[in-house]
Amino acid sequence: MPDVSLERIEKGFQIMPNWEDRYRFLVQLGRKLEPLDDEQKVEVNRVKGCTSNVWLVPTLSDDDPPRMDFRADSDAHIVKGLVALLLIIHGRRTPEEILELDARAILERLDLQAHLSPSRSNGLFAMVERIRELAGAAAGRKAN
């Protein structure tokens, strides 16, 4: 995930009321994501429900307790920026912490809640659901 704090993004958005600047900021954030290799851009990693392609690859660290992290890519820049933001929100946490997170509240602070509607084709909603699903699966595996 990009080495940018959520706090910095929130401050950035506060001083940029104009959406053009915010999108520019998100595009730059997306560019900080390390691109996925072609072999990772496969159907099993693709997030369904996005008009553009989004791939999300989870990893689990050797820490105790293990922490989840994600790599992601998209062929659309703004979507890639949005997914980078989600990785900053959710990354390097235990699956249980991820499941307890209220991503909606954070996105509302960033005035991005309108983008979270399931009817929006950018797939932000689908991406949050997918991250939670992966965290749920990781938490379940550990419990067994």
Partner: peptide, 22 residues
């Protein structure tokens, strides 16, 4: 060249312009 169709439609939408991407 640089922007995906989805990016184009998103920026245009922020300016009140409705186009389709896909």
């Amino acid at each position: 060249e640089e922007a995906h169709a989805h990016d184009i439609a998103t920026i245009l939408d922020s300016k009140g312009i409705a186009v389709r991407a896909g």
